[in-house]
């Protein structure tokens, strides 16, 4: 069967850019989005007026516009004003800024779920705002936010396929090229879908495992 052979041959050719591009792109963007999201959530939580307005504006714009268009603006749009960014960095910038806006809201909700009394107790122990956040509130908030953040990570893996539109050589792009040569669209796209499914499954298992670990540590209230 030539299709079986094609699938077997193409499997590694699709998986390799997955390992080299899709997964690093996802992980780097996700870590950056967590940093952006945490800072955006903290300035709102701390009620710093100007920064809070800025944070709300950022979340409003990013959540209100399509990811694909954000990719196009940065990659195809910015060169018009003299800013040229390579495909992969452009994708990382857009994915982290985009996901940052969503995780900011997840993290803000988690921060607000931590009892205010613990924050006051932290102040009474002589800690300042950032110390209270770092040692007391964020570790607990992270645990609260973890399931939704893991959800976002899984969504992000799949969203990276949009980066094919700005010429990033990730799995979807590579598959498209193979399809263009072989015309086996159904088989190859199903194979690609299967690879995404495998990655998502691994991440889901990892999520379950980590949540179990948190519970062992007995930090639930």
């Amino acid at each position: 069967m030539s299709i079986l052979k094609l699938l077997a041959d193409s499997f590694m050719r699709i998986l390799l850019p997955g390992l080299r591009v899709t997964i690093p792109l996802t992980l780097i963007s996700f870590v950056l989005s967590l940093i952006i999201g945490t800072i955006t959530a903290l300035v709102q939580f701390a009620n710093i007026r100007f920064l809070k307005t800025l944070a709300r504006f950022y979340i409003w714009v990013i959540r209100g516009t399509p990811l694909l268009i954000q990719l196009f603006v940065v990659f195809y749009g910015l060169p018009n004003v003299g800013i040229v960014i390579d495909p992969l960095p452009a994708a990382i910038i857009v994915f982290s800024i985009n996901e940052g806006a969503y995780s900011a809201e997840t993290i803000r909700g988690a921060l607000e779920s931590i009892p205010k009394g613990q924050i006051e107790a932290g102040y009474c122990c002589g800690l300042n705002f950032l110390q209270v956040m770092w040692h007391i509130v964020l570790p607990q908030a992270f645990r609260v936010a973890f399931p939704s953040l893991a959800n976002s990570l899984i969504a992000m893996v799949k969203n990276t396929s949009l980066a094919a539109n700005i010429t990033v050589m990730e799995m979807f792009m590579v598959t498209q090229q193979i399809v263009a040569r072989t015309y086996q669209a159904l088989a190859l796209y199903l194979e690609l879908a299967f690879i995404y499914l495998m990655i998502s499954t691994i991440l889901t298992k990892l999520q379950t495992y980590l949540e179990g670990r948190f519970n062992e540590r007995g930090i639930q209230r």
Partner: peptide
């Protein structure tokens, strides 16, 4: 300060 509701740090 000792609070009515203890306010221990739950993650510690």
């Amino acid at each position: 300060f000792v609070f009515q509701s203890f306010n221990l740090f739950a993650n510690k």
